[in-house]
Amino acid sequence: MARREIGLRLNGSNRRIEVEDQVLLIDLVRSLGLVGTKLSCDTQVCGACTVLLDGRPVSSCTTLAIEADGRAVETIEGLADAGAPGRAPKLHPLQQAFIDRFAFQCGYCTPGMIMAAKALLDERPHPDAAAIQHWMEGNICRCTGYQTIVEAVLDAADRSRRLP
């Protein structure tokens, strides 16, 4: 198997990384310590492994790491602002809304849910509930019953609207 060096922008930082051709994006990001991205179905059905590749949601379980060459990859770890030294990071409005709306229980699907929702809000800042349901129907949660997730995304969209 061939190895090659790829250059990517990972959560805002430029990185050069050597990868083997057959390595999957999920294994690359997790090997770098970004273990928020979860493997579950491994068949592109559940959405737990969702990351953004140039802003579009993809299943990192079925995307080759070399696809990230020259592109931007965002994972759940890239959402919160680091904040001032010694202070708690400031969560992304989606993360805060998921907490406030009790939009997770076990949390395993949550990083994928939030990344999918981020891609939606980046493209359509104020979707209605039906648009959220359609966008996220490929993200499976076995705990919440989905209603609180839809409410959290609506809430996050609303919070963004109120930002200066």
């Binding site: 592109q44 059905v45 579009r56 993809v58 079925t62 999918a116 359609h134 996220m136 490929g138 993200n139």
Partner: peptide
């Protein structure tokens, strides 16, 4: 707009 799911459509 209704093929599979959003990630499959994106790729």
């Amino acid at each position: 707009a209704n093929v599979a799911n959003i990630r499959v459509r994106a790729a």
